[in-house]
Amino acid sequence: DLSALRVEEVQNVINAMQKILECPICLELIKEPVSTKCDHIFCKFCMLKLLNQKKGPSQCPLCKNDITKRSLQESTRFSQLVEELLKIICAFQLDTGLEYANSYNFAKKENNSPEHLKDEVSIIQSMGYRNRAKRLLQSEPENPSLQETSLSVQLSNLGTVRTLRTKQRIQPQRTSVYIELGSDSSEDTVNKATYCSVGDQELLQITPQGTRDEISLDSAKKAACEFSETDVTNTEHHQPSNNDLNTTEKRAAERHPEKYQGSSVSNLHVEPCGTNTHASSLQHENSSLLLTKDRMNVEKAEF
C-alpha cells in the first residue's frame, strides 16, 4: 500500500496539472479547448457565450486583445492532455480508494470495455495498479461463464418462442383441414349439385314461356288486323247491294208514291245487322237523297 506522504505528493502534482488545464472563465477543466490569436485557451462554450454578448469583436479576458469567431481554432494537443489527466485522476481514485477533492464528473469518461483496460497499462506502473489488474484478471474467467449461461438462457427462450410460433402455425392448418373434411358430406355435395341443376332447368323453362307469350301476342295482333281488313271488305261488298236497293226503291216510288213515303220513313230507323257505323252513315245519306228525289217527283206529278 501507498504511504500517506506519497499520496499527498501525487495529489499535489495532480492539482498543479489541473490548474494549468483549467479554463480562466469557468475555472474547470477545459472541455473542447479553443485557442485565440494571443495563444490563450478557453472552453469553446465559454468563448461563444462571451462573443454573443456583444456585437462585433470582444476582448480576451487575459490580455484584452480583440477576439472574433473566425480567429478561434481548435487545439487537439490540449484536448489530449486533458484526457490523460482524467485517466490519471481515475487511476488515483481506484488505487487509494479516496475521492479526489477537486474531482469532476468523471463517470462519463469511464469505460469498462476490454480495449480501455489494455490502455490503462500505459498509465502508471504502481503496486495498487498491479493489484487491481490481478483482481480484474481473476474476475475475467467468471465473466465468460456468466456470458455462457446468459447465452444458453437466451437460446432456450428463443427455442420456446420458436416452438410456440410453430404450434400457432400448425393449429390453424389443422382446424382448416378439419373444417374441410367435416363441413360438407358427400350427400350434401350431391344435393347441392341437384339443386343447381334444377335451378338451371327452371331458368331454361322460364325463358321459352316468355317467348311463347310474345308469339301469342303477335298472333293476336295479326288476327285483329285481319279482322279489321275483313270488316272493310264487308262494308265494300254491302255498298253495291245498297245501291241495288236504292234503284228498286226509286222504281217503286215512281209507281206508288204514297205507299213509299211511309216505308221510307220506317227504313230510316232500321239498321242492317253486321255493318259498322260507317255503313250506317252512308245509308242515312242515301235515304235522305231518296226522300228529296221522291218529293221532286211528287211535285212534278201535281203540276
Score class of each variant (00 low, 15 high):
H256P: 13
I124N: 11
L50F: 15
L203F: 10
Y104C: 06
A101S: 06
K49Q: 06
L158I: 14
R165G: 04
Q209R: 13
V198M: 03
D39Y: 06
L21I: 02
L51H: 00
R255W: 04
L289F: 08
G128D: 12
P33H: 05
S185Y: 07
S35C: 05
R70T: 04
R295S: 11
C225Y: 15
C273R: 12
E8V: 06
E140Q: 04
Y104F: 10
Q261P: 10
K55N: 13
I20N: 15
L290S: 11
E142D: 12
K134E: 11
L151F: 03
R165S: 01
N143H: 13
T36K: 00
S150T: 09
L5V: 07
L146F: 02
E214G: 14
K19T: 03
L2V: 13
Q173K: 04
E22G: 01
M17T: 00
T160S: 14
L48R: 08
S264F: 00
P240L: 11
S280I: 08
P257S: 05
S219A: 05
E8G: 07
A253T: 09
V265A: 05
K250M: 03
T96I: 08
S156T: 08
V270M: 11
I215T: 11
G199V: 13
M296I: 13
I30F: 12
L136H: 15
E99D: 07
D39H: 09
L50V: 14
D66E: 11
S150C: 07
E9V: 00
K221T: 15
H40L: 01
S79C: 00
C196W: 04
N52K: 05
Q18P: 01
Q93P: 00
E142Q: 11
Y129H: 13
I41K: 00
A16T: 02
P114A: 09
Q11K: 10
D294N: 13
H278Y: 06
L217S: 14
S58T: 00
K87Q: 10
R295K: 15
R6S: 05
H256Y: 14
T277S: 00
R135I: 03
L86F: 05
L51R: 01
V198L: 04
L137V: 02
T233A: 07
N15H: 14
N111D: 14
L146V: 10
R251S: 09
N143D: 04
H284Q: 03
R165W: 06
A220G: 13
K221E: 07
D218A: 07
R169L: 11
N242Y: 08
L204F: 12
F45L: 08
C26Y: 00
R70W: 07
K19R: 02
I41V: 06
S219F: 11
S145A: 04
L217W: 08
Q209P: 01
G97S: 03
T207N: 11
L81V: 06
I89S: 05
K221Q: 10
I41M: 08
N276Y: 10
E148K: 09
E229G: 14
K108R: 15
D66V: 05
H284Y: 07
V7D: 01
Q209K: 10
A4S: 10
K192N: 05
R212T: 11
A16D: 07
N102S: 14
D188Y: 01
C60S: 01
S280R: 06
E99G: 02
P61T: 02
S228T: 13
K192M: 14
P257Q: 06
E214D: 12
I25T: 00
D200G: 05
Q73R: 08
K109N: 04
R135T: 06
E9A: 06
L48M: 04
Y260C: 05
D1E: 05
S113Y: 04
D39N: 04
P33L: 05
Q73H: 10
A133T: 06
S150R: 13
K250E: 12
N246I: 03
L94H: 11
P33T: 08
Q261K: 09
P208S: 08
N15K: 03
E140K: 11
A223S: 08
I25S: 00
V82A: 01
S156F: 08
E229V: 05
E9Q: 03
V265I: 05
V232A: 04
S280C: 12
S216R: 08
L62V: 02
D66G: 04
R212S: 15
L62S: 05
R165K: 06
D231N: 13
S35F: 15
Q209E: 09
